[in-house]
Design a protein around this nucleic acid. Structure first.
Length: 714
DNA sequence: AACCCGGAAGCCTC
DNA sequence: TGAGGCTTCCGGGT
């Protein structure tokens, strides 16, 4: 698609260069609308221009920690700044600024051949917020109802400052694809309209909108080949618009990560796209624009882009709905409504979050809508990781600032539970009894994966970790209630017991794993296993004490426990501007907190943060390739070194001979072996170097081997 | 299908 | 180097 866009652009450039002003920068009409001369080549920007641009970015991307004085330089100097330089000046927003600059640069380049009056679409291809538009006197976006003649490129050259001219020029811009192929995204005055409507959806409406958005996708996909060019089929767009307008009122687009990509300047897209084994030529997509293909491939592109393309504006996730049914759709809304969001990004969120191809409203299901054969791994692929945030299929989630240093699962869960931003992901079902519910397991897993740098984290794995807590009475499962768990003790109790039990007792998971382990063999273990029963008044542990506290002291206690107090504020982390939070040294935080309780929390070190561009193997999963999202473990070496030893093989053959009569696993098969064999099977999409195996089993063979007795061994 | 369970073994960090 | 704390995978159950 990107290739197409690029091609389209070139084509259009050729077409229009003769009809549009050839001096090629923008018409005076256009310039009038510019904040200073930001459409001039950046090299020519004055110091003042740079300041204006920074201001614009601050405003447009809600960048909290950008100090104008840090950018007192002219355009040339600005261009010399690399991402790190930006980050030095603005730790939190540097990457965004850098990205914005690159985008701006690329856009200017592409605009040189196209009179494009609708300047200052933000660098990600989205229209500016109304306030920004007003402030910078940016013309409104074109409306698709304009007649097709209005869009003719020549119109741009002759029409004055009019909507038609704007539309004509805009149709040459990548953002046009977004606008006209997704007419429902046309800003209807305040961008926040969406959210209001969305928020008040009743269930029926939600169903309707889901159906509608499914249709939308089909329609959009069916016209994708035309909308991929810079000269979109307006007619189809209009038709599409009509088809959508009913649902538009309540549910703005459930579409397309492609928006962002399409909106990217082609040059950027092009330059950032690196060939991967999985990326097929874009041109093929046009020929066969199946929804499935497009979707998956686009996701691949996105993943690739993470490596090189600056991140989109940061958003903070934070749903506040506590309804178990609150889907991400609502959660997104809650994000938007949440006044505690540190970044003033809601207005953009309101638009952007609803444009993702895999709107979390459909978390998981969406893939199936689009792709009946969707692989489980596709889910992983659609989760894109940044250094401290995730684009979880369109829902941008931030690592909880409070959990920056947290590497312990139960602590992490606790932090999320205490953070209202994550209410739609995990929340207290019963605060007093410390019963909590996981609402969106996959999101929770993604967050945990981000936290631990295990980008292939799944709820399956996360829950395994939680199950280990059963044994030492940190967490228990609420019987027969899905996704409902309970903290058995307060954080300090857990810590206390962990401290006391030391390395020889119940925190040794290897011991816990042994059946011979008896939790009551030591006083510590007894204490550890003192089950907190919130209904039992006899509970004298501090759990009771803890849970009887009002929520505010609890928050404070937790904040202290987790060292998440800002030295300068007593507000809860959700209310803490992450920008601010990142500005002080967490070491200071530790100094301000109970050091004993944070012993497990390593001090903050920004170097330890996995940067988007430098995800190493130690990050467990290198996002440079979708495949690597599966795991950072070296499967090849695993399979090599673990490949059936003779004894194992014998066991295998012995046991597998009885396998044919039963689909159930035979315990006679050494688990390690079956695990390893299946292990390989589980990474079908990985470029395993199976040839390195002497036996040269294919992955499928390995699986087969487990079921069918290998003749060679027999 | 999604969730749940616990064994087994490996990985990573400290 | 060993311990802690998972992570990954599994077969099986609900």
């Amino acid at each position: 698609m990107l290739m197409v866009a690029h091609t389209g652009n070139s084509t259009m450039t050729t077409t229009t260069s003769t009809t549009l002003p050839t001096n090629n920068y923008l018409s005076s009409t256009v310039k009038m609308n510019l904040p200073q001369n930001l459409l001039h080549p950046i090299d020519f920007w004055s110091k003042h221009d740079v300041q204006k641009w920074i201001e614009y970015c601050i405003d447009e991307y809600s960048l909290g920690d950008v100090n104008l004085s840090d950018f007192e330089m002219n355009g040339k100097a600005l261009l010399l700044l690399n991402e790190d330089n930006f980050k030095q000046r603005s730790p939190r927003s540097g990457d965004i600024l850098h990205k914005a600059l690159q985008q701006h640069k690329a856009m200017l380049k592409s605009w040189q051949c196209q009179a494009f009056p609708y300047q200052l679409w933000n660098s990600f291809g989205f229209p500016p917020s109304p306030s920004t538009a007003r402030r910078y006197n940016i013309p409104p976006p074109p409306h698709p109802s304009l007649s097709i003649s209005s869009f003719h490129p020549t119109a741009a050259g002759v029409l004055p400052h009019s909507a038609a001219a704007a539309a004509a020029a805009a149709c040459m811009h990548p953002a046009f694809n977004y606008i006209f192929s997704r007419p429902e995204t046309i800003p209807k005055s305040p961008l926040m309209n969406h959210q209001t409507n969305y928020f008040h959806l009743n269930q029926q409406q939600q169903q309707q909108q889901q159906q509608q958005s499914t249709r939308n996708r089909e329609i959009s996909a069916s016209s994708s080949s035309s909308t991929s060019s810079y000269c979109p089929d307006v007619t189809s767009a209009k038709i599409s618009h009509k088809l959508h307008e009913k649902s538009d009122a309540i549910h703005p687009v459930n579409e397309s990560m492609g928006i962002k990509r399409e909106a990217l300047s082609p040059s950027i897209q092009q330059s950032n796209r690196q060939p991967t084994p999985n990326s097929s030529p874009r041109t093929t997509r046009i020929i066969s624009p199946s929804i499935k293909q497009e979707n998956i491939d686009d996701e691949d592109v996105d993943i690739e882009q993470h490596e090189t393309v600056p991140t989109p504006p940061i958003t903070s996730s934070s749903p506040s709905s506590s309804s178990p049914q609150s889907s991400s759709g609502l959660s997104k809304l809650n994000i938007l409504n949440n006044q505690t969001i540190p970044f003033k990004i809601r207005s953009q969120l309101s638009t952007r979050m609803k444009h993702q191809p895999n709107d979390v409203t459909n978390t998981g299901e969406n893939n199936h809508d689009l792709d009946g054969n969707s692989l489980a791994n596709d889910n992983t692929r659609q989760i894109r990781y940044f250094h401290d945030r995730i684009d979880f299929r369109g829902d941008i989630l931030m690592k909880p600032p409070a959990a920056k240093n947290c590497r312990i699962l139960w602590e992490f869960l606790y932090i999320l539970l205490e953070d209202s931003h994550y209410e739609s992901i995990i929340h207290w079902e019963n605060r007093e009894k410390m019963i909590f519910r996981i609402i969106q397991a996959d999101k929770l897993a993604a967050l945990w994966g981000l936290q631990k740098n295990r980008l292939s984290m799944t709820y399956e794995k996360l829950s395994r970790g939680m199950r280990y807590y059963y044994s030492n009475n940190i967490i228990s499962k609420e019987q027969s209630k899905r996704l409902l768990y309970r903290f058995m003790r307060s954080p300090d109790e857990i810590r206390k017991s962990m401290k006391r039990t030391g390395s020889t007792t119940n925190m040794v998971y290897s011991n816990l794993n042994k059946k011979s382990y008896q939790p009551t063999t030591s006083p510590d273990a007894q204490e550890t296993n003192l089950k907190y029963n919130p209904n039992n008044d006899d509970n004298s542990s501090s759990s009771t004490h803890f849970t009887n506290q009002s929520s505010t002291p609890i928050h404070h206690q937790l904040l202290q426990l987790f060292s998440i107090y800002s030295p300068s504020t007593t507000s809860m982390v959700p209310n803490l501007n992450p920008n601010t939070a990142l500005l002080y040294s967490p070491r200071n935080v530790n100094n301000n907190s109970i050091s004993s309780s944070s012993s497990n929390i390593p001090s903050f070190d920004t170097k330890s943060l996995p940067l988007l561009t430098t995800i190493s193997k130690s990050d467990r999963s290198n996002s440079s390739s979708p495949d690597s999202f599966d795991s950072g473990r070296d499967r090849t070496s695993d399979s090599e070194k673990q490949h059936c030893s003779p004894s194992q093989s014998l066991s295998s053959s012995t046991s597998t001979s009885s396998y044919s009569t039963s689909t159930k696993r035979k315990q006679a098969v050494p688990l390690s072996l079956t695990a390893r064999l299946s292990h390989q099977h589980h990474h079908l999409d990985q470029p395993l170097n199976l040839a390195a195996n002497k036996d040269e089993h294919t992955i499928g063979d390995c699986k087969k081997q487990k079921v069918i007795s290998p003749p060679s061994i027999a």
